[in-house]
């Protein structure tokens, strides 16, 4: 750039600054931007962590001990009940963390693989801790109660438990009398139950409670219960079709 053009350019800019009363943006503008980016970044990390805790809760309570009893193969059961939604959320928010973190003042110094790995490791670590402390289950329960059709995206086991001949039955407690309980299954059949079952923690033996039962069919709508488990989620309409 020639000296004349250079001086001309400088004079033009100085004139514009003065004439248009241009002022440097306030420090707060930049601080607000920086803190917003950091907040979004940390939120992404938190959502990834919660996602993994729900993933773990859903995946580990997938009735792994009875899939063979229900006549399913390992991979069939794993694919049918894999919590894809939460797995996708974990990956999605790891990338969201990468994009926001790399936009911070120092974040761009770190390689993509390092940031994403770090995000996933933190999510796995704290997500496991959240799962162990029961937060994953609580959040999952909250979504089940508040989000309609939640089971369509997280997998549903209704069909698995509509197999009384195979020893698996689910339904709603309608009365608790001298015999253990009376249950109406999801097809509307009333079952009288016998036996002294092991009752999973969290199961409330009260009318209206949905439960899963492992046992043996003893006759016409009589079920000998060996174990009672809590029913989680909605009941899928026409689950085995």
């Amino acid at each position: 750039m020639e000296q004349k053009n250079k001086d001309n350019c400088i004079n033009c800019v100085m004139s514009r600054i003065k004439d248009e009363k241009i002022k440097p943006k306030s420090k707060w503008t930049f601080l607000f931007h920086d803190y917003s980016v950091i907040a979004i970044s940390l939120s992404s990390l938190l959502i990834g962590t919660i996602s993994f805790s729900i993933f773990l809760n859903t995946f580990l309570t997938n009735d792994w001990d009875i899939y063979q009893q229900a006549g399913q193969g390992f991979w069939e059961h794993a694919i049918k009940t894999f919590p894809f939604l939460w797995f996708i959320f974990l990956i999605l928010f790891a990338f969201s963390f990468y994009y926001t973190f790399s936009s911070t003042e120092k974040g761009y110094h770190y390689e993509q693989s390092v940031i994403i790995s770090l995000s996933v490791i933190i999510s796995l670590l704290f997500g496991t801790m959240m799962y162990l402390s029961g937060i994953g289950e609580k959040v999952d329960d909250y979504f089940i109660q508040t989000i309609p059709h939640y089971h369509y995206v997280t997998g549903n086991h209704t069909c698995l438990w509509e197999n009384p001949k195979g020893g698996l039955l689910a339904g709603m407690i309608v009365s608790t009398g001298t015999e253990p309980i009376t249950v109406v299954d999801f097809q509307g059949n009333t079952w009288n139950t016998i036996g002294s079952p092991i009752i999973q923690e969290g199961v409330k033996n009260i009318p209206g409670q949905r439960i899963k039962m492992i046992g043996i069919t003893r006759g016409n709508f009589v079920f000998d219960i060996k174990e009672i488990r809590k029913w989680v989620g909605e009941v899928e309409p026409n689950p085995c079709q």
């Binding site: 350019c9 514009r16 600054i17 440097p24 943006k25 503008t29 930049f30």
Partner: peptide, 15 residues
């Protein structure tokens, strides 16, 4: 273009 760049630099000096 250079003038626009300098105005941007000036505006963002506190950043």
């Amino acid at each position: 273009v250079l003038q626009e760049v300098f105005i941007k630099i000036y505006l963002n000096l506190r950043g």
